[in-house]
């Protein structure tokens, strides 16, 4: 049985929170009156896709060896860092700052991504420390 640490759980839970939250809680602006999508919709889709990737890797890494787990944690951290810039930087959002994509989605994604990245880096650093102890 592989040892599951607090950061393992945290990484998985935060990735899942991003994955579910982006669709349920802090989603982008609704469709336009003509039914078409606004630009922020695509930012939401991109964040959703990236968060599925993060959650997937966070889940799979539980089955890996300690070294592989550490590498995967770092990969999730990098993915989170990139995802943080998806809304507003890589993919533009709506015209008004007061609109939902600016007011809710962007800060929520940014905060959760920072949390995921922090958890990933912490896990990586702790794994390295354990490695040194064992050596």
């Amino acid at each position: 049985m592989k040892k599951i640490t607090v950061t393992d759980i945290l990484l998985l839970l935060l990735s899942l929170a991003l994955c579910i939250g982006i669709k349920v809680i802090f989603h982008a602006c609704g469709p336009k009156e003509d039914g078409g999508f606004m630009a922020c919709h695509w930012a939401e889709q991109a964040v959703f896709a990236a968060s599925i990737g993060m959650a997937g890797v966070s889940c799979i890494r539980l089955l890996l060896s300690r070294r592989e787990k550490a590498g995967a944690a770092l990969a999730v951290a990098v993915m989170a860092a990139v995802t943080a810039f998806l809304p507003g930087v890589f993919i533009r959002l709506c015209m008004m700052q007061e609109m939902r994509c600016h007011a809710v989605m962007r800060p929520a994604v940014l905060l959760l991504c920072i949390a995921v990245a922090a958890a990933g880096v912490t896990d990586f650093v702790l794994s390295r420390k354990d490695d040194r102890h064992d050596a």
Binding site: C29, K32, M38, A39, C40, R92, L93, C94, M95, M96, M99
Partner: peptide, 9 residues
Amino acid sequence: SSGCCSIPV
């Protein structure tokens, strides 16, 4: 509207 992704200004 002022183009896409906007509410009336």
